[in-house]
């Protein structure tokens, strides 16, 4: 690892902590049921009046039903806007209505905060669809995640209470007081740095040189054509013109990162200069992905009245993140043995980045790409500034495994914290089994019901990933989408299912996933990865809220010190390792060994 990489990692963590802690004070106030005064408070109450919202506390079942119906309505709206976009305003490129399977996949994807994109934004979605369907869901899906985190924290903090908060109040406050102002601030910064924000027609420009490139050939259904050996068939294309896509990018970019959504305005996502124009915007994008998830750790401590608990969760997340970031940064700085054999100089120096530059933006280089990849997959964001498919096998294993851990290393806004707190419950349960005591966490007894719900949460995503991958590799429609046969093709499918089930949304590319088969499979996986996870979390919140808080005694396991951090890290890593190592061995591990064999 280079000195620059160490420095980047250190500065990133320092800036993140310095911003997240004060933000947590502000977010704690939003989570507090006390009314907020001033103009903002008036707007909030006007929204409740217009919507007919009763802001009383809800039981967990009522909270869950409201959340579910609201999100299902979101799927219907996003689906309809895509299907009708040709006749809706702001479609200057006359883009066709999106096909049913792709529209359904995208609707579920944006509502579940996954933002998996089987389409290319600039050639598929009108400005109206981008703004009124996709960007709106970027706000609402993020607010939904934070609301569930608030509900779970209240479950721990309240004593003998029947309710866990009000979904409509949480949703409105998160959107109005947190996501909108932060997005406005970050969007203006992005515009100042050169991110575009307009409603212009796309521009045709003549390039200085003619460009010739190899393009994979596809059949009428959009599937890759393959030769007798199973390799993709390509055709040579030469061009001297380029189409520059325009659009209201900066405003969508801000919430894309802050809400850990990750769905790019353009197909190239954050590698595109109009989405991510400078090293400063790249740094702000990385900070934005972790800002709210990191702040929510401290919110947890503040709402419990014991900030040490928040620091412990933050510490456990940081330990895993730093370990994985170091592995990714190291792996990407290594020379590719295949290129070494061809005599290519890949050493790091003043004049070249060295290491593996394939699939990376030269504007960002190895450090900013590997760090971005680690952050975007630790958080369930899924924005990319480099192509993960082109990472070295171990470099590619890092994002994939971080996703498979359940997106709990900072994770998605809200979902990262509630996912990590579920692992904390599992950790105290394991510790309780070892010492023969009834487990308790932050003053609440953990009993049979909470462990049953925890088991559902921990088992549901691996079930979706592994069964989904098995279905894809065993069926003709699943294998037909593979551009790269062999272990790398398996990695691409495993990554796609991992990304969908854990609501990340990034891709290993190289997989033709915009087909009826993958659109349906991934939509079902994304839905259950989100809501079959949230329902038991809310059930735990409701059960815990009804319990008394028990006092700390000499026999209580301290959950704020290094011992508990180590226990929590061990639980997350062991569950992740035991569940996915066999599948990873068939993909990135084999690829790595194949490269070593060549060396």
């Amino acid at each position: 690892m280079t000195a620059q990489a160490w420095l980047a990692l250190l500065i990133f963590l320092a800036v993140l902590t310095a911003l997240a802690y004060p933000l947590s004070i502000y977010i704690s106030r939003i989570a507090d049921p006390l009314p907020i005064g001033g103009i903002a408070g008036s707007i909030e109450h006007a929204i409740y009046r217009v919507a007919g919202v009763d802001s009383k506390d809800m039981t967990w079942t009522r909270y869950a039903i409201c959340l579910l119906l609201f999100n299902a309505l979101g799927v219907v709206v996003v689906y309809l806007v895509q299907r009708l976009q040709l006749w809706l305003p702001l479609n200057y490129q006359h883009l066709a209505n999106v096909s049913g399977d792709s529209a359904f996949d995208t609707a579920v994807s944006f509502v579940t905060n996954t933002n998996w994109q089987g389409y290319a934004g600039e050639s598929t979605m009108s400005y109206f669809t981008q703004m009124l369907a996709l960007a709106v869901q970027n706000f609402l899906s993020a607010a939904t995640g934070i609301s569930v985190a608030f509900a779970l924290i209240r479950g721990f903090a309240r004593r003998s209470a029947a309710g866990i908060g009000n979904f409509w109040v949480d949703l409105t406050r998160c959107t109005l007081y947190l996501l909108l102002p932060l997005s406005l601030l970050v969007a203006v910064l992005f515009m100042a740095q050169g991110a575009i924000q307009n409603f212009d027609d796309y521009k045709q420009v003549r390039t200085l040189e003619s460009l010739t490139y190899a393009q994979p050939k596809v059949d009428a259904a959009g599937m890759p054509l393959k030769d007798a050996k199973g390799d993709p068939v390509t055709e040579s294309v030469t061009t001297r013109t380029q189409t520059l896509a325009m659009g209201p990018v900066a405003s969508q970019e801000a919430i894309k990162m802050l809400g850990t959504n990750g769905g790019g305005f353009f197909n190239a996502n954050s590698a595109h200069p109009y989405e991510n124009p400078t090293p400063l915007t790249n740094f702000v994008q990385m900070i934005s992905m972790f800002l709210i998830p990191a702040a929510l750790c401290f919110v947890f401590g503040r709402m419990l009245g014991d900030t040490r608990q928040g620091w412990a969760v933050y510490g456990a997340m940081t330990v895993i993140f730093v370990g994985m970031a170091i592995l990714a940064l190291w792996a990407e700085q290594q020379a590719n043995p295949l290129l070494v054999r061809m005599g290519v100089d890949q050493t790091h120096g003043i004049l070249q980045a060295g290491g593996n530059m394939e699939g990376k933006e030269t504007r960002f280089g190895i450090t900013a790409s590997a760090l971005f990849a680690t952050i975007t997959t630790s958080a369930s964001c899924g924005a990319v500034n480099a192509m993960h498919d082109s990472f070295m096998p171990l470099g590619g294993l890092v994002p994939m495994w971080l996703i498979q851990l359940g997106e709990v290393v900072f994770g998605g806004v809200g979902s990262g914290l509630y996912g990590m707190l579920i692992f904390a419950i599992m950790a105290v349960f394991v510790a309780g089994l070892m010492i023969g005591r009834t487990p308790e966490y932050v003053g609440k007894k953990i009993q049979s019901f909470e462990i049953k719900m925890t088991s559902i949460v921990i088992l549901v995503t691996p079930l979706l990933v592994l069964v989904g991958t098995a279905v894809a590799v065993m069926t003709e429609q699943g294998r037909a989408g593979i551009f790269n046969p062999g272990s790398h093709g398996f990695s691409e499918i495993l990554y796609a299912l991992s990304s969908a089930a854990n609501n990340n949304g990034s891709a290993f590319a190289g997989l033709g996933a915009n087909t009826p088969f993958y659109n349906m499979l991934l939509a079902v996986v994304m839905w259950f990865g989100r809501f079959a996870f949230i329902v038991p979390v809310l059930a735990i919140a409701g059960s815990l809220a009804g319990k008394k808080r028990i006092e700390v005694t000499a026999g209580t396991l301290p959950t704020h010190g290094p011992l508990f951090i180590a226990l929590l890290v061990g639980t997350v890593v062991l569950v992740g390792a035991l569940t996915y190592v066999p599948a990873l061995a068939l993909g990135p591990v084999i690829e790595h060994l194949q490269l070593l064999a060549i060396h």
Binding site: T61, A64, I65, L68, L69, A72, V75, V76, Y79, R83, G100, D101, A103, F104, Q447, S448, F449, K452, M453, I456, M520, A523, V524, W527, F528, F531, A532, V535, P536, A539, G542, S543
Partner: peptide, 30 residues
Amino acid sequence: MDLLYPAVLALLLLATIALIKGCAALERRK
């Protein structure tokens, strides 16, 4: 407009409501 995808959404919704009911039933039995 095809009806397959709205039907799939309805099924997903019903399955998740069944999960809520199942979890609530488990809670009552505790």
